[in-house]
Structure formats: structure tokens, C-alpha cells
Amino acid sequence: MNQITQTAPTKEEAIAIALEKLGVPMQDVSITVVDEGKKGFLGFGVKPAVVQVTVLKREIVEEAPIKEEVKVEELQPVHEFEVSTPVEDEVPSKEQTNELAVEETIQYIEKIAKEMKIDDLVITEKRDGKFIHLHLNSEKAALLIGKRGQTLNALENLTQLVANKFSNSFIIIKLDVGNYRERRRESLEQLAERMADKAVRTGKKVEFEPMSSFERKIIHHALSFRVDIETYSVGTDPNRYLVIEPIK
């Protein structure tokens, strides 16, 4: 696959998803924003963003490209841009580029936190292969999480772009605040069982409110072993929701 058109609630999320599907870093693609989308108001007028991501052909050039200082502000999506591939001899090792990617990502998170008036943020790091887990701790944890984790999810999407801007290999950034992810998973699994029991008891399908694909997957997986119900998703993001229907 050399090109993909991706739809998501935001441009940043669409780019991050496309990069993950293609399995390539940011510097190996060109990106065209087909539609910037709209945030809407109170759930009305929401329009998803659409981006087209194309894998660039790798070519060895005779002269090394001029290195330019990259600022976080330059990571804002533009309508079309390309990042050239460095000469092979100048490409640092994966360990070195991943170190830089993590460092830049942490600095980006700290900058966002300061803008949110959070001055006690502590970030701890854990690595597991291509996964980089960053745990954020603060007395103002609620601000970093947001309603149903929306702020945390948005921040994770943005940091994914930052990380792969500086990394030579595709890495996946996972953010958590005060073990929120695990607590949310447990809460969704318990909710899934209750709603499944309700669907069987009443003989009627149960519909959830719109939620992210990550949270829908948690519920799908939690109920995958039950033979008395089936689960499926309906609609398009960001208003896609999950349905539990009893098997009669």
C-alpha cells in the first residue's frame, strides 16, 4: 500500500492513523489535507477531516540535505508538505532517533501542560518494543484527562505526530494519567456486562453513546465470549456508537 485516504475527527488523528496503517514514519510520506473538517457546536455541524497520505519513493542523493531546526509549532498540519529522506550515511541509529523522539515528545507535553496552567507535571517513561508508554502525574490530572478521556486522547494523537517527526522508525506513543486507562477499561468492561445482561433480559438491543474506536474495542473484546448476544458498531466517527443485540 503506497497511498491511503483517511478520515478522522481531526487532521492530526487522521494523519496518525494513516501512518500506523502504512507502517512508515512521518519523514517518508507526503500529506495532503483534503478536508480540514469542522468541530461543530454541541454535536451539530460536525464534519470529519480527510487527509491523503502518500509513501515517498526512497532515493539516495549525492548531497546531504540541509538540516533545519524543527520547532513544535511547525508540526501544525498544512495543506501539503514533504519531508526528504536523509542520506543513508547520515541516518542515526534507531536508538538515537528514538531517544530524540521521546525527548521531543516529552518537551511537547510539558509545553502543552504549561499552557494549561499545570506546573507540577511529572512524566515517567517505559518502553516496550515500538511502544513508548508515558505516564503523566499531576494534582490537576482531571484537566489532562478531560470528559471521558477526550483531552487525553487528543494529546496522545498529537504526541504521536511529534514522535514520528523525529524518529527513524515507526513508534507508538501511549499516554496515561494516574492509571486512568486501566480504570476506564475496568469501568467499560463492567458496563458491557451490565448492558449485555439487560439486552438478554429485555430481549431488546441496547445502544451506547458515541465513543472512540479504542473504547468500542474494549467492549467488543469483553463480550466476545458470550454466545447469547452480538455486538456491532453503527454510524461514522466521531458519532459512531456500539450496539448490543440479544440472539433469539
Rank of each mutant, 00 (worst) to 15 (best):
K47M: 05
K47L: 05
L56V: 09
I109R: 00
R148I: 02
K114C: 02
V51D: 05
L121W: 01
A49M: 01
I109C: 00
V87A: 13
G146A: 00
T97R: 04
V70Y: 03
E90D: 15
V55A: 10
V78M: 11
L134Q: 00
E74R: 08
L144T: 06
Q76C: 08
D128W: 02
L121N: 00
I66E: 15
L136R: 00
E74F: 13
S93P: 07
K111I: 10
I132R: 02
P92K: 01
P86Q: 04
I112Y: 06
E80D: 07
N98D: 10
K130C: 06
V51C: 03
A142P: 03
I123E: 04
N137I: 06
A113F: 04
K111N: 13
E80N: 12
V70I: 15
V50C: 06
G146P: 03
T97F: 03
G40P: 08
T85F: 11
K94S: 14
A64C: 09
M116V: 04
G45M: 02
G40S: 07
D128F: 06
E69I: 09
V87Q: 15
L75V: 12
R127P: 01
I66G: 04
R127Q: 08
V70Q: 07
D119Q: 10
V50K: 14
Q52N: 14
L42E: 13
E80Y: 15
K71Y: 15
E80V: 08
I60T: 14
T97A: 04
H133P: 02
V50N: 07
G129N: 11
E88T: 14
P77C: 05
A49V: 02
E90F: 13
I60L: 14
V72P: 11
E88Y: 12
A64R: 13
V102Y: 02
E62F: 07
E63K: 13
K126H: 08
E139N: 12
V91Q: 12
E110C: 05
A64Y: 11
D120M: 04
H135D: 14
E82P: 00
